[in-house]
Every structure is written in C-alpha cells, then in structure tokens.
C-alpha cells in the first residue's frame, strides 16, 4: 500500500556508494488516479531545500530501470502501474545530510483526454521528509 502523500516518507534517501553519494532518491506513489504508460509522463521537476532540478536533468527509477526524459518519452510499452512505487533520481553530488528536508515535486502528466493546451499538467507534492543515512 502507498502512503497517502505523493512524496513517500520511506525511500527518501541518498543515492550512490556510501562516502561518494551522487544523488538523492525521492520515492513517489503513482502521480495519477490510473496506471499509465511511462511515455505519458513528461518528466518530474524536484526542489530540494529550495534548490531546483528540472525534469530535463532528473530521471525516474521504475522497476529497477533508470529512465531519463528521452527514455521516458520513448517508453510507450512500459507501464507505471497503480500500487507501484518509483523514485525520482536527482543528480546532486554528495547527496543530502541526514535530517529533515523540504521537498517539492511536480510530475508532468499528459492526459490525452484533456484539452491540448493543458498537456502536460503538473501534479504537485510538497512536504518535509527525512533523510536517515548519510
């Protein structure tokens, strides 16, 4: 089961080898009320303690595979299913210090049945979340 909030508490962690962290993982629930093919997601913007990372530089880890924006747009047969977690990988050398951080995300979701000028629409999440390990 998901935590209710878009940004999950569990899974918020540093990425890469201990002592040589190269990024931060922000775990999300599906940013939609229906499962969707990954090509309908146009990337995810992330802000960590006020530092902005565009959807053009973040990537998504889904089912053990890492998708950058171009790979996401090509992923017409990969499904992000309801109930499945995925993590946004934010390129931040050194990662974050253990402690409480302010995290904001905007997942850019294309819903083909919405008017063309509303595609994609950002699905927002914002909260305080805790990094446990350096």
């Amino acid at each position: 089961m998901y935590e209710f909030q878009l940004i999950q508490s569990t899974g918020f962690r540093n990425h890469g080898p201990e002592g040589a962290r190269d990024g931060v993982e922000v775990r999300l629930r599906l940013p939609n009320y229906r499962g969707m093919r990954l090509s309908l997601l146009d990337g995810i913007d992330v802000t960590l303690d006020g530092e902005f990372f565009s959807h053009e530089v973040t990537s998504l880890i889904l089912g053990g595979t890492v998708y950058d924006l171009a790979a996401m747009r090509d992923a017409t047969t990969v499904r992000w299913a309801m109930g499945e977690h995925a993590s946004v990988l934010v390129p931040k050398p050194g990662g974050l210090l253990p402690g409480i951080h302010h995290v904001k995300v905007a997942a850019l979701v294309r819903s083909p049945y919405f008017p063309p000028h509303l595609q994609p629409l950002p699905v927002h999440g914002e909260r305080l979340a805790t990094i446990v390990l350096p």
Partner: peptide, 9 residues
C-alpha cells in the same frame, strides 16, 4: 478504459 491517442509526443 482509455484510448491514449497522444501516447507519443
């Protein structure tokens, strides 16, 4: 169900 006509950009 959905027919995602804009599955691709």
């Amino acid at each position: 169900s959905w027919v995602d006509t804009k599955l691709r950009l």
